[in-house]
């Protein structure tokens, strides 16, 4: 798919989509959205890139391997669950910062958890699609 139009469009739209995915992630706690959907939207950025440029280029564009995204996502999610345990509380008990942060609002471990989900979903979608792409080439 070496269409010039596609390439240009994808490059233009990618930044927008990426921004949108972060937006979805951030607002998830208060409006429909969240880490999962955000991660999926983010992955479309790279899927589109794969379609327009090829999977090797997409991998280069991603800079890190999808697999390490999975690990990062999982680790983030699990780590977000641990602090309460050290404080002698139940596993996964939410810990919130007192002050509100612009855009996000209240910041706490559930948000970190959702961030983990975001990265993980991005990672798994990409690793599935890219390896399928690689397999069929």
């Amino acid at each position: 798919m070496n269409s010039l139009i596609l390439k240009t469009t994808v490059r233009f739209i990618n930044k927008l989509l990426l921004l949108f995915s972060v937006f979805l992630l951030l607002r998830g706690h208060n409006e429909p959205g969240g880490g999962f959907v955000g991660g999926l939207v983010a992955s479309t950025v790279f899927i589109l890139y794969t379609l327009s440029e090829g999977y090797k280029e997409a991998l280069a564009y991603l800079k890190v391997s999808p697999f390490s995204l999975i690990i990062v996502g999982l680790t983030t999610a699990i780590l977000s669950a641990l602090p309460s345990l050290f404080l002698g509380d139940a596993f996964m008990k939410a810990i919130w910062l007192e002050t509100r942060i612009p855009i996000i609002g209240k910041f706490g471990t559930p948000f970190v958890f959702d961030l983990g989900v975001y990265f993980l979903v991005l990672g798994i979608t990409l690793s599935i699609v890219l390896s399928l792409r690689k397999d069929s080439e």
């Binding site: 596993f91 948000f111 959702d114």
Partner: peptide
């Protein structure tokens, strides 16, 4: 959180979600 479903997923029943992302991984 104002989105109750999302709060359930990341807080009230976050353990389910933890299991879920492991399934995905």
């Amino acid at each position: 959180g104002r989105n109750v479903v999302n709060v359930i997923i990341v807080d009230f029943r976050a353990l389910d979600t933890l299991g879920e992302i492991i399934v995905l991984a």
